[in-house]
């Protein structure tokens, strides 16, 4: 144990501030030097509480009057400029619940927003659309199309309930091709 460590240990032991571990380390009987150190630390410690107060010649009354006046004026000034604390109408739990609800409403509104803003409402009925070389049926975002050879004439019919039929006659061979597709 170094001198510094030993001195620190005696400084605590002499005044009863050592931990149990430190007391255990110093279990052996103190030698004369340590006893002297202990006495010295105890002597200093005994003298320190007298400095809890100011020396008797100190003009405390005068200083305290000045300080007290400053403090009271400062506190009054603080009251004047003190902003009104925000009203605490609800507790934090209720606030959290209301916040969540508000967030939910915002998300819900945002979710609905494209439909509100979409200028053209998607048709709910099945629509048959014929174009050269292609026949397509669609309903809202679903649909299918048949692509066929563009040469020759064609007949395109659309069912009202999601079925589609297309007849195609080959001019050269006279062969009739019928395509009937049901939209499920």
């Amino acid at each position: 144990m170094t001198d510094k460590t030993r001195e620190s240990l005696r400084a605590l032991l002499a005044n009863g501030d050592a931990s149990w571990w430190q007391r255990l380390k110093a279990w052996r009987k103190a030698d004369a030097e340590e006893v002297s150190l202990d006495h010295e630390f105890q002597q200093i410690r005994r003298q320190l509480p007298q400095f809890r107060d100011l020396p008797p010649y100190f003009a405390w009354d005068e200083l305290s009057r000045e300080m007290k006046a400053n403090i009271l004026v400062g506190a009054e000034a603080g009251d004047v400029v003190k902003t009104t604390p925000p009203l605490r109408v609800i507790g934090w739990k209720a606030g959290l619940a209301m916040g969540s609800l508000t967030m939910l409403m915002i998300v819900g509104y945002w979710w609905q927003l494209p439909r509100h803003l979409a200028g053209v409402v998607a048709p709910t009925q099945a629509v048959l659309q014929a174009s050269p070389g292609q026949l397509a049926v669609y309903q809202q975002d679903k649909g299918f199309s048949i692509v066929f050879e563009e040469t020759g004439s064609s007949l395109e019919l659309g069912g009202a309930s999601g079925s589609m039929r297309a007849d195609y006659v080959d001019q050269e061979t006279g062969q009739l091709t019928v395509a009937h597709v049901y939209l499920d």
């Binding site: 620190s8 240990l9 430190q22 010295e40 200093i44």
Partner: peptide, 17 residues
Amino acid sequence: SKATVRSHIANARVKFR
């Protein structure tokens, strides 16, 4: 912590002495 306080007090007393 209390251990830190003990260390501060020990150092202070040694320096003071």
